[in-house]
């Protein structure tokens, strides 16, 4: 076996540093928590988490199952990718769906087309109770949103799944405290300190496979309130809107009803990295149709148990 050259002292590149920190966090979950799960959606952030978990635990199995909360409004390419990736890794994938929560009357939609994004919280909290999870590992990043910027790496949630931003556990050095009582849990964010650019640089460096819709492709869209809205059976064009076919890519691949693509011709990882380095619009600003209602909408959802 070839010996890989190491970096001289104190010049870990920023990606090596971020990787080492995330691996450390994942191993702390394994060491401290009795029943964790890793949230895997098939999106780019959780794709990084899977790579980091391989680096943390191989040649062993992951000490947790993968869990996906499926809104029922996901792109089929992403779900196919999710299933294939879990199978390739030979790790257990558990899927719980908002659809089932609606059927059970746990989620009541105001109207059939309502975004299911915020309703994921109910399904997630039910899954946490059902699987008796004491920790959920997620791919959220502090650079995504103002309320996230204030969140701990190990973020304590009470028995109602709620986040209390004014009463967070102090987090010192890298001495994480994941202790909880029965019914409570921690949400753990190993890539807290990564930016969108770091994620793309890491995916490029590690040559990670990603769902095809992250690359530029032609797709029918309408322009609505400054965003490109993909025309799908769930999001049809409204009367009077002109449908265009545009070369787009997704920067984030959440719920179809609230995730918009951006205009792009980037069809390689190098081009995506270059575009991300020079974009003038934040990831959420460009692509989320649900976060702009108020400055505090993410904070509010997190208090209700959202990731």
């Amino acid at each position: 076996m070839a010996v890989v050259p190491t970096y001289p002292a104190s010049t870990l590149s920023h990606l090596d540093w971020l990787e080492a920190e995330a691996i450390h966090v994942l191993r702390e979950v394994a060491g401290q928590c009795a029943s964790p799960a890793l949230l895997f959606s098939g999106g780019k952030d959780s794709i990084c988490l899977l790579r980091l978990a391989e680096k943390a635990f191989r040649p062993g199995r992951f000490p947790f199952p993968l869990l996906h909360i499926d809104t029922g409004h996901n792109y089929p390419e992403v779900l196919a990718f999710r299933d294939r990736r879990a199978a390739e890794l030979r790790e257990r994938l558990v899927v719980r769906s908002v659809e089932d929560s609606i059927r059970a009357g746990r989620v009541v939609l105001k109207h059939p087309q309502e975004s299911r994004n915020k309703h994921q919280s109910v399904t997630l909290l039910d899954a946490i109770a059902e699987l008796e999870l004491d920790a959920c590992i997620g791919g959220a990043r502090r650079d995504e949103e103002k309320a996230r910027a204030k969140e701990r790496v190990f973020s304590f949630r009470d028995e109602f799944g709620g986040w209390d931003p004014k009463n967070q556990r102090p987090e010192l050095w890298s001495l994480y405290n994941a202790r909880v009582h029965k019914g409570e849990n921690v949400r753990v964010f190993p890539i807290s300190n990564w930016t969108e650019l770091d994620v793309w640089q890491y995916i490029a460096r590690e040559r990670l496979e990603i769902p095809s819709i992250y690359f530029a492709h032609r797709r029918p869209v309408v322009r609505r309130a400054g965003a490109l809205v993909p025309v799908t059976p769930l999001t049809p064009a409204r009367p009077g809107e002109a449908v265009e076919e545009v070369s787009v890519r997704f920067r984030t691949v959440g719920d179809i009803t609230c995730t918009a693509p951006v205009e792009s011709t980037a069809d390689t990882l190098a081009e995506i990295v270059a575009e991300t380095a020079t974009t003038t619009i934040t990831e959420r600003g460009a692509t989320r149709l649900d976060d702009q209602t108020s400055d505090a909408s993410m904070e509010q959802r997190k208090k209700e148990g959202y990731f």
Binding site: M1, V3, T6
Partner: peptide
């Protein structure tokens, strides 16, 4: 080891 790659040295900060 870092994942499946053998290292000649590991220094502060590396997992």
């Amino acid at each position: 080891l870092l994942h499946d790659a053998p290292l000649a040295r590991a220094c502060a900060g590396q997992s």
